[in-house]
Design a protein around this nucleic acid. Structure first.
Length: 748
DNA sequence: TTAAGAACTTAGCATATGCATC
DNA sequence: GATGCATATGCTAAGTTCTTAA
């Protein structure tokens, strides 16, 4: 791949999540990694992007802060310090020369794109994509007259009665039945869509499944404090079991985890327990821990029949609670079980790790359903917090969790209409970006020269988001979550500038923790103007100051919205991921390869995207072993091949002597055997390459969230690859719309 | 206009499942 | 039929963006 989308795969491999409190963020050292030639291919870029050549302008670096913005958007606690800095900076830059350019706010869409003025758009906000998306066909606004409404109601009734009827006979052979009569798949993508924010007209469901109640430990399983057995109250015991279950995990050795746990645990203790248990170090949970391990072993050792019984019970629960009726259709619910209580396990250095995640009761639950539906029943003697009928949202059930105070939801499965439509729309927005990305790139390049600091910052940030597929980077409340950043929240300490490094000019080294505390490490050459701007942004700042002190995600997204309707920072990630896949597939697939080789090419294209998006995973624990196993298989296959070749040779010799039909046939069959073994060997070798390359890269995230599935479907169709080789069952369900609609000519 | 809250998407890890091999 | 392994699925945290309230 050519272009400017350079991305250093070094970040993979040294990129384990930094979640050890003792590993301070700026202490991590990166190893230098061998540059695998294969991976070298994955330097990302769009060919249409490479002409960002640097005009050798003399940069007029230090611009006056003409905007005089209030900076209210940055953390208050930093504001004062920052203001002081800005003042001093302003004083300094005023002496410098101005270039006199004001960056124009051009908003022009390609002519083939329908375009409305922002004002007009606002009034039509909910319908915007209907009006814009070339292939995301709007169909007429769905307005139901009474007749239609009645019909719909009748249909809903029909579905309900069908459901109860089938349920009677289903209990015993539920699964079989589902397999025997695959219901006709509903092609929602061929139907009209709602507008004006209405998400559904009819919604009926059975509510959530609660976590099973706490079962006290048998009396022989003891907790010891300071060496003495101690019987805990059920409340305190339950929380103690949460800790005991995690005893083998590294978490329980961390100070913050232990401190938070102990604090919350004490809240559950009786006053007597509280007086007695004052030191976590004196607590001995090992018996509890052993008990749970034994239980888990016992579960594994259950007979087939017992396992079958549990499976059937789960299936019944799924059938009862796992589906809802939304409009005229039975739809699968994604997460119908309420999260059970336990200890909060944040990712990375989370200040709240170890806190008690409390049990959710019916009284915490808000139910959302149709007025004219049969409401879910709370457990006997209990009440819901509220039953509401809001059809402008997609959730069925919600509650507020106690760790961050955020709301959790029960929503539909990705295969549902409501999720599928949104997903489709997401890719259509990304395709619209494709049409105007050149214009947007030209604009932000122009903005690098702006005399307004805020515009320069915005333009450089956008360049990073586009070039490196960085996330937007919202501000986070300090002390509430792990210290992670995205583009707009980058701090000075997260980048290093090298005017020259390893034979390249203007290199920026990024080193920060992103979402989920996954490390982002990358060294990229940037354009001189970007480099100079970064120097300017970093001037007179402390390491923990914001790099882009005049920018936040809301400012950035507001600007993007002006450039293209529906454009946000996230769209760049989707766009760049999808376009990269499409380009890589074109580049890597060759007609004469067999199917396994083509699939390797697909995976490599997918991998290129995963590297671009920094989707990492911890190397599987069994990785080395499984590679070894595979190598053993390969060696065995090689032996088998040479044996087969020997046999072929002798058969040929035999045939030369005898010159009869029998020996000719023998040669033929030996030849076929050699061929077959060669194919098998190749398949294994391909598998080994694929696995090795995938050691620390997670392909799933990009496949599921960033790659327009129609690109993959088209590729499958073009090369005669069964789509099952690319998407598993769940993925095929999620992407049913794409599988149905994309033909081999589809272009992202 | 801005901050807070709500809604929804994206994320990696843990566990369950099911298939291949002995 | 048991075992071991790879893959699929479930779970829920952590993001982004949209919406509402002050």
């Amino acid at each position: 791949m050519s272009g400017d989308h350079s991305h250093n795969e070094d970040q993979i491999d040294c990129g384990s999540r930094v979640n050890d409190s003792h590993k301070h963020k700026d202490k991590y050292k990166h190893k230098e990694h061998k540059k695998d030639k294969e991976r070298e291919k994955y330097k990302h870029g769009n060919s249409d992007y490479k002409d960002f050549s640097n005009k050798k302008h003399k940069d007029k670096e230090k611009m006056k802060h003409k905007d005089g913005s209030t900076d209210k958007f940055k953390d208050k606690h930093k504001e004062k310090r920052k203001d002081e800095k800005i003042k001093s900076l302003d004083g300094k830059v005023k002496k410098e020369k101005e270039n006199g350019f004001a960056s124009p706010h051009v908003k022009s869409e390609p002519e083939d794109d329908l375009y409305h003025s922002p004002k007009f758009e606002k009034s039509l906000k909910r319908e915007r994509d209907d009006d814009y998306d070339s292939e995301f066909k709007p169909k007429k606004i769905k307005t139901e007259n009474d007749k239609k409404a009645k019909k719909r109601k009748q249909e809903n009734e029909d579905i309900k009665s069908k459901k109860t009827k089938s349920k009677k006979g289903e209990v015993a052979d539920g699964k079989k039945k589902a397999k025997q009569e695959p219901e006709e798949k509903w092609k929602w993508w061929e139907e009209e869509r709602y507008t004006d924010g209405v998400k559904w007209k009819f919604l009926e469901h059975k509510g959530p499944v609660f976590a099973p109640p706490y079962e006290p430990l048998p009396s022989h399983v003891k907790f010891y404090y300071d060496g003495k057995a101690m019987k805990l109250s059920p409340e305190a015991e339950e929380v103690a079991t949460f800790f005991a279950k995690m005893l083998d995990h590294e978490y329980t050795t961390k100070d913050i985890f232990r401190k938070n746990f102990f604090k919350d645990w004490r809240k559950e203790m009786t006053s007597e327990e509280k007086t007695k248990i004052t030191d976590l170090k004196k607590c001995n949970f090992t018996e509890m821990s052993e008990y749970f391990k034994a239980q888990s072993e016992a579960r594994k050792a259950m007979t087939k029949e017992e396992k079958q019984k549990i499976k059937e019970q789960n299936e019944r629960t799924l059938q009862e609670y796992g589906f809802c009726i939304m409009d005229n259709h039975k739809e699968r619910i994604a997460n119908f079980r309420i999260e059970p209580p336990g200890l909060f396990r944040g990712r990375g250095d989370h200040p709240k790790m170890g806190m008690l995640k409390r049990r959710i009761r019916p009284e915490d639950i808000i139910i959302n359903c149709s007025k004219d539906s049969k409401y879910p029943e709370p457990p006997p003697g209990r009440k819901w917090k509220e039953v509401r009928h809001d059809n402008k949202v997609t959730w069925l059930v919600s509650w507020t969790e106690n760790i961050q105070g955020s709301i959790k939801y029960i929503m539909l499965n990705p295969s549902s209409r409501i999720k599928g439509e949104k997903d489709w729309q997401k890719y259509e927005t990304a395709r619209r970006l494709k049409k105007c990305v050149d214009r947007i790139r030209a604009q932000y390049r122009e903005d690098w020269k702006s005399k307004e600091m805020r515009i320069r910052q915005r333009a450089v940030a956008l360049y990073f988001i586009d070039k490196l597929a960085l996330r937007a980077g919202n501000e986070k409340e300090e002390g509430e979550t792990a210290d992670t950043v995205g583009c707009c929240s980058l701090r000075v300490e997260h980048i290093k500038l090298y005017p020259e490094s390893e034979g390249q000019e203007y290199v920026v080294e990024f080193d920060f923790l992103g979402k989920d505390s996954i490390r982002y490490y990358n060294r990229v050459p940037v354009e001189k103007r970007v480099f100079k701007n970064l120097q300017l942004f970093m001037e007179n700042k402390e390491p923990d100051d914001d790099l882009f002190d005049r920018l936040n995600t809301s400012i950035l997204n507001k600007h993007l919205q002006e450039l293209m309707d529906g454009l946000t920072a996230k769209v760049f990630r989707t766009y760049n991921a999808s376009i990269t896949l499409q380009q890589q597939l074109k580049e890597l697939t060759t007609a004469d390869e067999n199917i396994p080789a083509k699939i390797l090419s697909y995976n490599r294209a997918n991998r290129a995207v995963a590297i671009l998006c920094n989707h990492q995973r911890a190397p599987p624990k069994t990785f080395e072993k499984s590679m070894q196993n595979l190598q053993t298989k390969i060696d065995a296959k090689k032996d088998q091949l040479s044996e087969a070749k020997r046999e072929l040779k002798s058969a040929k010799a035999d045939a030369k002597v005898h010159r009869d039909e029998k020996s000719r046939k023998a040669v033929e069959s030996k030849r076929k055997a050699v061929q077959r073994i060669e194919e098998q060997l190749m398949k294994l070798e391909v598998q080994a390459t694929d696995r090795e390359e995938n050691k620390q890269i997670a392909l799933g995230t990009s496949k599921l969230n960033y790659l327009d599935p129609r690109i993959s479907v088209a590729w499958c169709k073009k090369w005669g690859i069964p789509v099952e080789k690319i998407y598993n069952k769940t993925q095929r369900e999620k992407f049913a719309w794409a599988i149905d609609m994309a033909d081999e000519d589809y272009e992202f």
